[in-house]
């Protein structure tokens, strides 16, 4: 039995916000696959919960007339992985969510929970960082949209007021159209594991194999997910080559700041940053239609 002291069910985002306002200690629960674990571990005690589980208003995926892909915050990983819009337009996100836990966890865990828990090991964050995802956040005073790269403030800390709800993840055409990507999750097991390092690359190339756009992002390489902006700038406009791969690896290492924990040492993570950025780049390049010499 979970130590839940109060439980409310929100039937709309509005209601969730009102409930949050009325209950200063309450938290949202979506899939529960993060929160309930923390309660079991005693990291959260005596919780007041406002359930947005299966709230239709924030679940599902749509393609807007302007090409923007809107993923409801309450959409589960399985729904994302299997959705035709995702598979067609941003398959790297499907690839990323497929690495999460196991089927059971993917059937309940939501993208919103994965972002809002503020964890650097989130398996969606690197891809969403690389794709400049926007987050639509609704609060008592209205709705705001911010970039995911501005959302994370520190380990477990995100830019979300007590009475705000993340309602959707937005992917605009200029961040996915023409792009190809690859997400590599490095973990100790092939399923049911937390990333030792997550690496996402998305890129766009010209017919001459010039890298027109390039983004590189990591999970667990710093206290929050990170983008490697300098490396990106360095790559843009260059032609793909093995030398460029080496440069990318080296450059990425200079832009991250992993820590040593019992899960892995800083040195090992740095090594992986270098290695995986090369591998992810190469694969993304191939997927973008690039040919290796």
């Amino acid at each position: 039995m979970y130590n839940i002291t109060k439980y409310y069910e929100a039937h709309s985002v509005r209601e969730a916000i009102e409930l949050l306002q009325a209950n200063p200690k309450a938290r949202l629960i979506a899939g529960g696959s993060d929160l309930l674990i923390k309660m079991h571990q005693g990291k959260i005690e005596a919780a007041e919960l406002i359930s947005i589980h299966n709230l239709p208003e924030i679940s599902g995926i749509s393609l807007e007339p302007d090409g923007t892909i809107i993923i409801g915050a309450g959409t589960t990983f399985s729904q994302i992985a299997n959705h035709p819009v995702i598979k067609e337009h941003i398959p790297v996100l499907a690839e990323a969510v497929e690495t999460i836990g196991g089927p059971q966890v993917r059937n309940v865990g939501t993208i919103g929970g994965n972002i809002c828990n503020g964890s650097t090991s989130s398996d969606t964050a690197p891809t969403l960082f690389a794709s400049n995802a926007g987050l639509r956040i609704q609060g008592a005073s209205g709705t705001r949209v911010i970039e995911i790269t501005d959302f994370y403030q520190g380990p477990g800390r995100v830019d979300l007021q007590h009475d705000e709800v993340l309602t959707a993840v937005l992917l605009s055409t200029d961040n996915y159209r023409g792009f190809a990507g690859h997400y590599i999750k490095y973990s100790m097991r092939k399923a049911m594991d937390i990333a030792t390092l997550g690496c996402a690359v998305v890129c766009k190339i010209t017919v001459q194999a010039v890298i027109e756009d390039f983004r590189l992002a990591f999970g667990v390489a710093a206290p929050t997910p990170v983008r490697c902006r300098k490396t990106e700038t360095m790559v843009k406009g260059r032609t793909f080559s093995e030398e460029l791969l080496l440069e990318v690896g080296k450059s990425a290492v200079a832009e991250v700041n992993p820590r040593t924990s019992w899960r892995a040492s800083r040195e090992f993570r740095l090594h992986l940053v270098e290695e995986l950025s090369k591998r992810a780049f190469k694969q993304a390049f191939i997927r973008a239609g690039g040919k290796l010499q």
Binding site: G102, R189, K190, A191, M192, D193, I194, W262, R263
Partner: peptide, 25 residues
């Protein structure tokens, strides 16, 4: 099974952090 050398506290006494092979492994 891992322990914090300073305190002797177990670090991975659960099935997520203790790497029992899954069917994929």
């Amino acid at each position: 099974l891992l322990f914090d050398p300073k305190t002797g506290k177990p670090l991975n006494n659960n099935l997520l952090d203790y790497k029992l092979p899954t069917v994929m492994d």
